[in-house]
């Protein structure tokens, strides 16, 4: 059942795309990430031009995150105030990121920057998260009690100006760190075609020290806003959103996300984090290592030759 994608201008297997959407949606619902970092490499491997893959899957991320945010919202797992503030930063970041991506693509350096971003961000975050979650698992097994987050020393940036109360997250902090985090994730969202959950989730846990029960839902909420803006900008500015591709992916994605959000309660948080860390690390290495391997073909087509 091959289907011709009008914007990507290639023909791909439709059930395979739905299945891919479903698997990534499941992971997304389970870990509270968009799952874009998993999907982009697979789509490129299937022959979809990278620019179209990145832009169209952002739309898939919108759908699967929307689907699971509603599930989390029912369990009071979304801090809308925190999410909204981060999303404002995310919107600004997305504008910036789409422009950066446009210029990189025309310079022929988009591949390099995408691969490097994957290597650096996924590699570093995967490694750190893996280390931390393994330590947590070991501590739990040995029965060591760690001081609760609130009792630890408060980070310096809590005291920056414009402090605000976030009752659901259990925080009273400056709005500057969440906005800065939002901008950073927005830029990455446009360049890597990801929602940025793999950065948001650890940042919310370790940097902002939000209450664990609202981290996943809030991260998904912020991802929806950022990726919706990214999709809109990519479609309007670069015409790289393939609605047929996105629809197939999100058809599977929304179902997978529901299943993922459902089963996530059955696992321990530190074990989930360890698995996510491992996935993140492997994808980062896989994408990044291609920079060091001698390419089989020294030449490649660059996009943007124009009509």
């Amino acid at each position: 059942m091959d289907i011709y994608l009008p914007i990507a201008e290639v023909s791909v297997n439709a059930p395979l795309l739905v299945a891919l959407g479903c698997v990534v949606g499941f992971i997304s619902g389970l870990f509270g990430i968009g799952g874009g970092f998993l999907m982009a490499p697979v789509l490129v491997f299937m022959g979809v031009p990278p620019a179209v893959a990145v832009a169209s899957q952002a739309n898939h991320v919108v759908a699967s995150s929307a689907s699971s945010v509603i599930a989390y919202s029912r369990q009071k797992g979304v801090d809308y105030r925190m999410g909204g503030i981060m999303a404002a930063g995310g919107a600004a970041g997305a504008f910036l990121g789409v422009e950066i991506f446009r210029i990189l693509r025309l310079l022929g350096q988009a591949d390099l920057v995408v691969a490097l971003s994957y290597l650096v961000f996924l590699g570093a975050i995967g490694a750190l998260m893996l280390l931390e979650s393994l330590q947590a698992i070991v501590r739990r097994r040995r029965g060591v009690v760690v001081a609760a987050a609130a009792e630890r020393k408060r980070p310096w940036f809590y005291g920056l100006p414009w402090r605000m109360r976030f009752p659901r997250s259990g925080l009273y902090i400056s709005v500057i760190p969440p906005i800065a985090l939002g901008v950073f994730v927005g830029v990455l969202s446009a360049i890597m075609g990801v929602g940025g959950g793999f950065i948001l989730v650890p940042a919310m846990v370790y940097v902002l020290r939000m209450r664990a029960s609202v981290v996943v839902g809030t991260s998904l909420f912020q991802i929806i806003v950022t990726t919706a803006i990214t999709t809109f900008l990519q479609a309007g500015r670069n015409q790289t959103v393939d609605i047929v591709l996105a629809s197939l992916l999100l058809f599977g994605g929304v179902i997978g996300a529901q299943l993922g959000a459902r089963v996530s309660g059955r696992f321990r948080a530190d074990e989930l984090r360890a698995v996510l860390a491992l996935i993140v690390l492997l994808v980062g290495l896989q994408m990044g290592l291609q920079l060091f391997v001698r390419p089989q073909e020294a030449f490649a087509f660059a996009p943007g030759a124009g009509k």
Binding site: A63, A66, S67, I70, F232, L233, V241, V254, Q258
Partner: peptide, 19 residues
């Protein structure tokens, strides 16, 4: 731009319908 808006709307709607 309209196309982009529509893509996002479809995504949001299907997320809501699924949930």
């Amino acid at each position: 731009w309209l196309y982009g808006l529509m893509s996002v709307a479809i995504a949001m709607l299907s997320g809501w319908v699924a949930s």
